[in-house]
């Protein structure tokens, strides 16, 4: 599926901000499930963007603005083609998780991390699932996926970054990264390597996964899901928020141990406090013969500095 994505975030500050330094992770990666066709980033005020690939393989755009400004707008536009994912054809035994080579290769995704740390509640839930499904890795991962959806309901603004997953589990509500962190923690507590994924989802409403007609533009947010390593297969991607397998409507930006490794925009600013933030993602499905772009955002051309991938 060919998708055009327009990531846009506007910060409006109360007073003049004299300096702002940021890192953006909004560019879809290219891998066996999707191919990046084009990417470009613009900021207002304009800035010189330095792009690199980080440890996790995610493209990072670093930019700083050091002249007084009261708002900062970041627009990243990409075109991406997503592919059908291969069908799962294996059903490895839980014992296969103990293979030293497998453990060594996935070591980082087996450890606790700040946002995917587990305590008794999570461990008990994971063990219960394990007893229910028997000794097959895939079944356990799917059970984790289902129970994540069953134990928490989506509630916008229910949580903030920094909340413990145990707390998410006990209060029973959260946003997409809480679903992903909980699923990751449940998997890891049972020795299944799992990672947090940041990306975009082309759908009108995450919670029902409603379909969208070709050519429609939908407004969404960046999304999060998780991937679990299945011995003999590779990474199985699941979207616990929507209780769906990850497919052609999911566009992956990157993965890591948890949110901190793939935070979409992190930075600091200096000179004012409490900005209002307006993040917005627009996604449009493109038929292959259609023009791949949105209407160009009209701006003062002198302020415009383009960074073309």
């Amino acid at each position: 599926m060919r998708l055009d994505i327009r990531y846009r975030t506007t910060f409006t500050y109360e007073n003049l901000v004299r300096e702002s330094q940021n890192e953006l992770r909004a560019c879809p990666r290219s891998d066996e499930n999707q191919g990046l066709i084009s990417y470009r980033l613009q900021t207002w005020p304009s800035s010189k963007v330095f792009a690199f690939t980080d440890y996790w393989g995610t493209r990072v755009d670093a930019f700083g603005i050091r002249l007084p400004h009261v708002s900062l707008e970041v627009v990243a536009e990409s075109s991406v083609e997503t592919f059908q994912r291969p069908l799962l054809t294996v059903a490895p035994h839980l014992e296969t998780l103990r293979d030293p080579a497998f453990i060594s290769a996935h070591h980082e995704y087996l450890q606790r991390s700040p946002h995917a740390d587990w305590g008794r509640g999570i461990e008990a839930e994971a063990r219960r699932q394990r007893e229910l499904v028997g000794d097959d890795v895939v079944s356990l991962v799917l059970a984790v996926h289902r129970v994540t959806g069953a134990r928490i309901t989506y509630a916008r603004g229910a949580t903030e970054v920094g909340i413990e997953v145990e707390e998410v589990l006990s209060q029973g509500k959260g946003v997409c990264q809480d679903f992903a962190h909980l699923a990751v923690a449940l998997c890891r507590s049972q020795g299944i390597p799992a990672r947090y994924v940041s990306g975009y989802l082309f759908t009108r409403d995450d919670s029902v996964g409603a379909d969208v007609t070709d050519g429609d533009v939908v407004e969404v947010q960046t999304h999060a899901w998780f991937e679990a390593a299945i011995p003999g297969f590779g990474w199985l991607a699941l979207d616990p928020t929507n209780q769906k397998e990850v497919g052609v409507r999911h566009v992956k930006i990157g993965h890591g141990r948890d949110y901190d490794d793939v935070q979409p925009l992190r930075g600091i600013f200096c000179g004012s406090s409490s900005p209002t933030v307006e993040p917005r993602v627009e996604i449009r499905r493109v038929r292959t013969n259609a023009s791949p772009v949105f209407d160009r955002h009209v701006r003062d051309p002198q302020m415009e500095h383009q960074q073309q991938q």
């Binding site: 330094q21 330095f50 690199f52 700083g64 930075g267 200096c270």
Partner: peptide, 10 residues
Amino acid sequence: VPGLMAAARA
């Protein structure tokens, strides 16, 4: 120094 790491990387 905000932005130092990117400067070093560049």
